[in-house]
Design a protein around this nucleic acid. Structure first.
Length: 460
RNA sequence: GGCGACGUAGCCAAGUGGUUUAAGGCGGGGGUCUGCAAAACCCCUAUUCGGCGGUCCGAAUCCGCCCGUCGCCUCCA
C-alpha cells in the first residue's frame, strides 16, 4: 500500500486512484530560459514517483504544461528581438533535450497555454456569469471572497496576508487578494480576441484549463515545487472548483522541496543558477539523480559541486556491481520487499537507495566468494531502473577511440610481461588523466571510462 | 509583520516513543588481494541526535522555551 503525503491535509494518506489509471498533472516550466538544476530536481523527483507507481502496477496518465505566454516571455523575447512564440519554442525544444538527457520519462501530453485559449475563455466567461469573477477595463479577476475555502491548501488566512501588506494593490481589484484570470494586452503584446477585449490569459488559469481538459474534473495527483503552493495552486483550486462545482479538484497534492545553491559563487543578477546543460557537461545524469534521490523529495536540497562529485563515486559503485547483469530475470524477493517498503512510505527514495547499495555489497561479496550473483544483479538493475538510473557507462565520443585504447592496453600487457613497470605505470596514469581507468585483475586488464572528475571551474 | 520547514558523525542523509547502545553514501584510518595501483572485500570512524527544561517505566522521536538556518507571503520547479 502506497502512502502519500498530501499537502492539503498535511498528512500521509493511503493512495488509491479514482479511476482505472492514475491521473497526474505536474506543473511545467515557463519556457523563457534554460532549464536549471532546480527544475531538474523537481522533475527527477516526480519521475521517480511516476516510475514507482507504474512499477506498482498503476497505469499513469501524465500531463505537463508549458506556460508559453506570460510577462517574462514577452520581456525576454523583446530583448532578443524574437517573437514570444519563437522564444518559447526554442526553450521548449531545449527542455525536451535536457529531460531526455536526464532520463526523465516524457509526459504523455505537453499542452501549451496558447493552445488552450478557447477553453480558457469559456472557463472565465462562466466564472463571471456565476459571480466568481468580474471584468474591469479588459482585465478579469477572480473574486476570492466568493470562495470560502480559499487558503486551505497553503493554510493562509486572508487577514494575515493583508497584514503583510506585500500583496500587490491594484485599484482595479475589488480586493487585494483577487487575482487575474485574463489580462488586457498592451500594444505589441500577444493578444487574443475575447469578450473583454484583446487580451491574454492570467498566470494560473492555463493549468486549470489543461487539467480539466485532459484529465477531468478531479485529478489524482497534482505536483510541483513548494514555491507553487501559494499562490499558484491555491488559485487553481479556487478557479477549478468554482468552475466545476466539484470538490476536490485534486485528490493528492504533492510538492517537492526546493533546491538551494550553496557555493559562495553567487552568480549575477538572478542569483545562482546552474543549468542542466552545465551540470551534464561535468557529471553523469545518474550522479545528479543520485544527489536528488539521496534526500527525501519534500526536503530542501543543497547543491554543491563537491556533493555531486561524491555522488559520481557512488554511482560508479552501483554501476560496477550491476555490470553485465541481466536486465530481466529472477529477483531476490527480500531486497525488492525492502525497496517497496521504503517507496511505499511516501516515496522514501533515500531508503530505497540504501537498499541498492546493500545489494551492491551483496553482489560484490558473492562475486568474491565465487557464488552465483545473477539474481542479485538482475534485482539491482531492476530496482535501480525503477528509480530511473541507467547505470550505463558514459560512452566514448568517437568509435575509433575504443580500438586505440585496446591497442594501448595490449602493448602495456606486453610491457608488464617484460616487467617494464615504469613504462606500463606511465601508460596507466596517463590514461587515468584522460578519465580512462585501467584495472589489472587476475583475468587480465580491464578498462572503463570514468566519469570526469571535478577539476574545472564551472563556467560563469 | 504573517505562515511554514528544518537543525542527526568531517560532509550528505534515513530513522520520528522500546525491534536502532542511530540505515545508506561520500570522505578518512587500518587490513586482505596486487609487481605497484585500481576495483572489491573486512575492520574502525556519532555512548549520541542544536541548547535547556518537562512528560513517560522508556525520547533523536512528544511538549515548552531558547539559539541557529532556510523557504513562502512578488515571478519561480
Amino acid at each position: 500500500m502506497v502512502k502519500v503525503f498530501n499537502t492539503i491535509s498535511g498528512q500521509k494518506e493511503e493512495f488509491t486512484p479514482l479511476g482505472p489509471s492514475v491521473t497526474m498533472y505536474v506543473c511545467g516550466v515557463t519556457p523563457y530560459d534554460a532549464m536549471h538544476v532546480g527544475h531538474a530536481m523537481s522533475y527527477i523527483s516526480f519521475d521517480a514517483i511516476r516510475r514507482y507507481l507504474e512499477f506498482r502496477g498503476h497505469r499513469v496518465k501524465h500531463v505537463q504544461n508549458f506556460t508559453d505566454v506570460d510577462d517574462k516571455i514577452i520581456a525576454r523575447a523583446r530583448e532578443r528581438g524574437l517573437s514570444p512564440q519563437e522564444l518559447a519554442e526554442t526553450y521548449i525544444l531545449q527542455y525536451y533535450a535536457d529531460t531526455a538527457a536526464l532520463n526523465i520519462r516524457p509526459a504523455h501530453l505537453y499542452p501549451r497555454a496558447t493552445q488552450e485559449i478557447p477553453q480558457i475563455i469559456h472557463i472565465v466567461s462562466q466564472l463571471i456569469s456565476q459571480g466568481y469573477a468580474y471584468a474591469v477595463a479588459g482585465d478579469v479577476y477572480f473574486r476570492v471572497s466568493r470562495f470560502p475555502r480559499y487558503g486551505r491548501l497553503s493554510k493562509r488566512r486572508q487577514e494575515d496576508m493583508e497584514a503583510g501588506a506585500r500583496v500587490e494593490v491594484s485599484e482595479a481589484k475589488e480586493n487585494p487578494s483577487d487575482f487575474a484570470l485574463w489580462k488586457a494586452s498592451k500594444a505589441g503584446e500577444p493578444a487574443w480576441l475575447s469578450p473583454w477585449g484583446d487580451g491574454r490569459p492570467g498566470w494560473h488559469i492555463e493549468c486549470t484549463a489543461m487539467a480539466l481538459h485532459y484529465l477531468g474534473e478531479t485529478v489524482d495527483i497534482h505536483g510541483g515545487g513548494q514555491d507553487l503552493v501559494f499562490p499558484h495552486h491555491e488559485n487553481e483550486i479556487a478557479q477549478s472548483e468554482a468552475f466545476t462545482g466539484k470538490e476536490p479538484f485534486v485528490r493528492y497534492w504533492i510538492h517537492n522541496g526546493l533546491l538551494l545553491m550553496d557555493e559562495e559563487k553567487m552568480s549575477k543578477s538572478l542569483g545562482n543558477l546552474v543549468t542542466v546543460k552545465e551540470v551534464l557537461s561535468r557529471h553523469s545524469a545518474d550522479a545528479l539523480r543520485l544527489l536528488v534521490l539521496s534526500s527525501h523529495y519534500r526536503s530542501p536540497l543543497r547543491y554543491t559541486e563537491a556533493a555531486l562529485a561524491g555522488m559520481e563515486r557512488g554511482v560508479e559503485r552501483l554501476r560496477q556491481a550491476a555490470v553485465s547483469g541481466p536486465a530481466q530475470g529472477e529477483i531476490l524477493e527480500e531486497y525488492q520487499e525492502q525497496f517497496m517498503a521504503a517507496m511505499d512510505d511516501d516515496f522514501n527514495t533515500p531508503q530505497a537507495v540504501a537498499v541498492l547499495f546493500d545489494l551492491a555489497r551483496e553482489i560484490n561479496r558473492g562475486q568474491e566468494a565465487g557464488a552465483p550473483v545473477v539474481k542479485a544483479k538482475a534485482t539491482l538493475r531492476r530496482l535501480a531502473g525503477v528509480l530511473g538510473f541507467t547505470l550505463e557507462e558514459t560512452s566514448l565520443a568517437a568509435p575509433l577511440v575504443e580500438p586505440l585504447i585496446q591497442l594501448l592496453v595490449q602493448v602495456r600487457g606486453e610491457l608488464r610481461k617484460a616487467r617494464q613497470w615504469a613504462l606500463s605505470d606511465t601508460i596507466r596514469s596517463q590514461l587515468e588523466e584522460l578519465d580512462i581507468a585501467l584495472e589489472d585483475t587476475s583475468q587480465g586488464t580491464l578498462w572503463r571510462r570514468r566519469a570526469a572528475k571535478e577539476q574545472n571551474e564551472p563556467p560563469d
